[in-house]
Design a protein around this nucleic acid. Structure first.
Length: 675
DNA sequence: AGCTACGCATTTTTT
DNA sequence: ATGCGTAGCT
C-alpha cells in the first residue's frame, strides 16, 4: 500500500504513535500522503472509515481528497469517511447539537453579505454609517470570533471609545443573530468550540466518533480552528497535520502560522516529518525558491530538492512601462508556445493584485488568445441566487428576518417601507420575528387593512410551504413550486435590462435547483430542506461548474492572483509586476512580518512553475493616474544571480542599502525644495 | 437594447 | 486617472 511512497512520505503515512506534523514543501506530495494515510488507517490499522475525519480549508481541496481516497478504497471501505472543510465539519456538529445553545433546528447561515447588511441596520441606530468603518467593524468582529472573544469579554477589554463602541455593536449583532435563529460563517467554527467547552459530555461524544483527525494546510488555521482541533483530538493524540510555514499567505485574515510551532508545546511527543523532495519543478526553479525563502527566519529549516533536470535559466523581463510589460509577456508567451508546440493551458500569468489582470486581458484578447480569469463575482452573490436562497432560508427558518426583508417585496407584493417599518417596530417591541408579528392581533391597529391582508397572505403562504418542508416533502419540487408561485421568471423579465440578461439569470436559478437535486441524491440522511440549504450555502457552485465544463474549450492561458494560485502548478509561469510596492505591496514595506508574508507570496509564485519561469517588471507605471518610476522588486535581488537571464537591460534590483540611500536622497531633495 | 451618470476601488479571500 | 458595474432613463 505504501510501496510507491518515498521514505519520508511512507514514514508520515504509517506513523500512528502520536501526533504528527508533516512539513510538506511545495509539490512534495502532501495530498498523496494524506490520502494514503487514510487508506492505510482503514486497510492496515483496521480503522472504520466513519471514525476518520479529514479537514481542509476549501471545498475544492475536500473534493479532490475525496476523489483520490475513492480511488484507493472500495465504496464499502470508504463509507462514512468524513472529508470536509472546517466550516462543514462545524455545521455537522451544530446540526446535531445547536439546541443546547438555545437555537432552534433549521437555523440559517448568513454569508458575509448578509452579515454586512445586518451590521448596517444595527449601526444605523448608532450613527456609524461610514462604509469603511463598517467593513472595519465586520473584520473586527470576525477577528474577535476567531480569537474566541465573546461580546462580554470584548467590552471588558475595550481600551478606548472606539473599541467600546465596536464591542457594543458586536453584542447587538450577536443578539440579533440569535433572534434570527441564525449564525454566521465564523460561528460555524466558534459555536462548536464554546459548546464543547461548556458541555464536556457533548465533546466526548464527538471524540468517540472521530478516532483519527487529519488537517490539511495547517498553517492557515486560526486560533478558533486550532482550538476545535485540540478539543476533538483530546488525549488520544491521533492527529496528523500537514502544512508548510513557507506557504503561509493568509495571516491578514487571521491565519496563525505559529500554530505549526505551537503543536510542539501542545503535543509534547510531537513527531515531525519533512517532505523535501519536490516532484514538480526543475532544479533551477527550486534553487531560486530556496534561496529566496532563506531570507525569512525559520523555526523548521527545510530545503526543497528535485531529481529533475536543471532546466532553463529564469528570465527577467525589464520593460518600459506596464503596457509594454503586458505586450512583451504576451508576445513571449506566443513565441514560446509556438517554439515548443505547447498548449495555452500550459501557461499561467500570476500577479499580486487583481487589477493587474486588466492589461494582460486586453492584450490576450487582442491576440485572440483564450484565457481563464480566476476571481469574479461568486455564484452566491448574484442577486437572483440570493433571492431564491432567501426564500429557501425563510422556508427553513421563518424567523430569519434578514431573509424576510430581502424578499418580502421581491417580487413586488406592494408591501412598502412604511408597512415594514411599522411591522418592524411591532416585532422589536415584542421581541418576536417579523414573520411571527404578521399574525399578531395587535398589528391590526397599526396597519391599514390592505397592508395587513398582504402581509398575512404572504405569511400564510410561507407557513404552508414551511410546514410541507418540515414534513420532508421533496425539496426540489417545493423549490420549483416557490419559483412558480412568486412568478420569479416574469419578475426577472420585467426588471432585467434585456431578455438575454433575464434568461441568463433564470438559467442560474435552474442551476441552483439542479444542485439542490444533486445534494438531495448525494446525502443519505439529511434530506430536509433546512439541511440542504445550509450545505448549499457553504458550497462553491461556480467553481464546480468550471470543473464540469470539461467539454468546453479548456485550452486557455490562466490568469490569477498569487493567492489563488496556491496549490496549483503550471508548466510555464509568468510572474508579473515584480516591483517594489507591487510585490512587496506598498502597504507592507514598514512591517517586517508583512514583508515576510510578501516574500512567501513570491515563493508560492515561483514554486508553481514546473519547467520555465519568467519574471517581468515595468520601469514606470501609472498609479492613480500618475506615471511613477518603479524599482525592481527586492525579491529579484534575492535570487541567485547566475540563474537569472535579464532581458531588456538589467537594473539594479532593489537592495535594502540602495533603497535607504535613495530614500534619504529624496528626503534631502524635498527638504531642499521646502527651504 | 443602448445610453448616461454615478459610485466604487486600486492588497490578498474562503466559508 | 481609469475602467468597471449598476441604476435609471429613453
Amino acid at each position: 500500500m505504501l510501496k510507491d511512497l518515498n521514505p519520508p512520505q511512507r514514514e508520515a503515512a504509517a506513523y500512528l504513535d502520536g501526533a504528527l506534523l508533516v512539513l510538506a514543501g511545495a509539490g512534495s506530495g502532501k495530498t498523496r500522503v494524506i490520502t494514503r494515510k487514510i487508506a492505510y488507517l482503514i486497510i492496515e490499522a483496521n480503522m472504520q472509515a466513519r471514525n476518520i475525519a479529514a479537514v481542509t480549508f476549501t471545498n475544492k481541496a475536500a473534493r479532490e481528497m475525496k476523489a483520490r481516497v475513492g480511488k484507493l478504497l472500495s465504496a464499502k471501505q470508504s463509507r462514512g469517511l468524513m472529508v470536509s472543510t472546517f466550516h462543514t465539519l462545524g455545521l455537522n456538529i451544530l446540526r446535531r447539537e445547536i439546541s443546547i445553545l438555545g437555537y432552534k433546528s433549521g437555523f440559517s447561515i448568513l454569508d458575509a453579505q448578509d452579515s454586512m447588511q445586518l451590521l448596517q441596520t444595527i449601526s444605523e441606530r448608532s450613527q456609524l454609517l461610514d462604509k469603511e468603518c463598517l467593513q472595519g467593524l465586520q473584520n473586527q468582529i470576525s477577528r474577535w470570533k476567531n480569537a474566541l472573544v465573546t461580546p462580554e469579554r470584548a467590552q471588558a477589554e475595550a481600551e478606548d471609545k472606539d473599541q467600546h463602541r465596536d464591542a457594543h455593536l458586536y453584542e447587538q449583532y450577536q443578539r440579533q443573530l440569535k433572534a434570527y435563529n441564525a449564525v454566521d460563517f465564523d460561528d460555524l467554527i466558534g459555536l462548536p468550540v464554546f459548546l464543547f467547552q461548556q458541555h464536556p459530555e457533548v465533546l466526548e461524544h464527538w471524540q468517540k466518533k472521530i478516532h483519527y483527525l487529519l488537517v490539511d494546510e495547517y498553517q492557515d488555521t486560526n486560533q478558533c480552528q486550532y482550538q476545535l482541533v485540540r478539543q476533538l483530538v483530546g488525549v488520544r493524540n491521533a492527529l496528523t497535520v500537514v502544512g508548510d510555514d513557507d506557504q503561509s499567505i493568509y495571516a491578514w485574515r487571521g491565519a496563525q502560522p505559529e500554530n505549526l510551532h505551537l503543536l510542539k508545546q501542545d503535543f509534547p511527543g510531537l513527531k515531525v516529518v519533512k517532505l523535501e523532495q519536490n516532484y514538480r519543478s526543475s532544479k533551477r526553479i527550486l534553487k531560486a525558491a530556496n534561496t529566496l525563502i532563506r531570507n525569512n527566519p525559520h523555526v523548521f529549516e527545510k530545503a526543497l530538492w528535485s531529481d529533475k533536470g536543471l532546466g532553463d535559466q529564469l528570465r527577467v523581463l525589464s520593460t518600459q512601462d506596464e503596457v509594454h510589460e503586458a505586450e512583451q509577456v504576451v508576445s513571449e508567451l506566443i513565441s514560446h508556445r509556438f517554439q515548443h508546440q505547447n498548449k495555452y493551458q500550459d501557461y499561467a500569468i500570476l500577479y499580486r493584485s487583481n487589477h493587474q489582470s486588466r492589461l494582460f486581458e486586453r492584450m490576450l484578447r487582442s491576440h485572440k488568445i483564450p484565457y481563464f480569469l480566476s476571481g469574479g463575482t461568486s455564484f452566491f452573490s448574484r442577486s437572483e441566487i440570493k433571492d431564491i436562497m432567501s426564500y429557501l432560508r425563510l422556508v427553513a427558518n421563518p424567523d430569519d428576518d434578514n431573509a424576510f426583508l430581502r424578499i418580502i417585496n421581491t417580487p413586488r407584493r406592494e408591501i412598502g417601507a412604511s408597512t415594514l417599518e411599522k411591522l418592524g417596530t411591532y416585532a422589536t417591541d415584542r421581541n418576536i420575528s417579523l414573520f411571527a408579528a404578521c399574525f399578531e392581533l395587535g398589528l391590526a391597529e397599526r396597519l391599514s387593512e390592505r397592508a395587513l391582508q398582504r402581509l398575512q397572505h404572504f405569511a400564510r403562504w410561507l407557513t404552508d410551504i414551511s410546514d410541507r418542508a418540515e414534513r420532508s416533502e421533496d425539496p426540489v419540487d417545493l423549490t420549483k413550486e416557490i419559483i412558480r408561485t412568486i412568478d420569479y421568471e416574469v419578475w426577472l423579465q420585467d426588471t432585467c435590462d434585456s431578455v438575454k440578461a433575464a434568461e441568463r439569470r433564470m438559467e442560474n436559478i435552474w442551476e441552483l435547483v439542479e444542485w439542490l437535486g444533486k445534494l438531495t441524491a448525494e446525502s443519505t440522511e439529511n434530506k430536509k430542506l433546512a439541511d440542504l440549504v445550509a450545505y448549499l450555502t457553504l458550497m462553491d457552485i461556480l467553481e464546480r461548474q468550471e470543473e464540469n465544463k470539461a467539454e468546453e474549450n479548456n485550452d486557455r492561458v490562466t490568469m490569477m492572483t498569487l493567492h489563488a494560485a496556491k496549490g496549483l502548478e503550471f508548466p510555464h509561469v509568468f510572474l508579473v509586476g515584480m516591483e517594489e510596492e507591487m510585490l512587496p505591496h506598498a502597504n507592507t514595506l514598514e512591517d517586517e512580518q508583512m514583508l515576510q508574508e510578501e516574500r512567501r507570496l513570491a515563493y508560492v509564485g515561483i514554486t508553481r512553475a514546473q519547467r520555465s519561469l519568467t519574471f517581468s517588471f515595468a520601469q514606470q507605471r501609472k498609479r492613480y493616474g500618475e506615471m511613477k518610476n518603479c524599482d525592481p522588486s527586492r525579491f529579484l535581488g534575492e535570487l541567485p544571480e547566475e540563474d537569472l537571464h535579464w532581458q531588456g537591460g538589467k537594473q539594479q534590483a532593489a537592495d535594502p542599502e540602495a533603497r535607504k540611500a535613495k530614500g534619504s536622497a529624496n528626503l534631502a531633495h524635498i527638504r531642499g525644495i521646502l527651504k
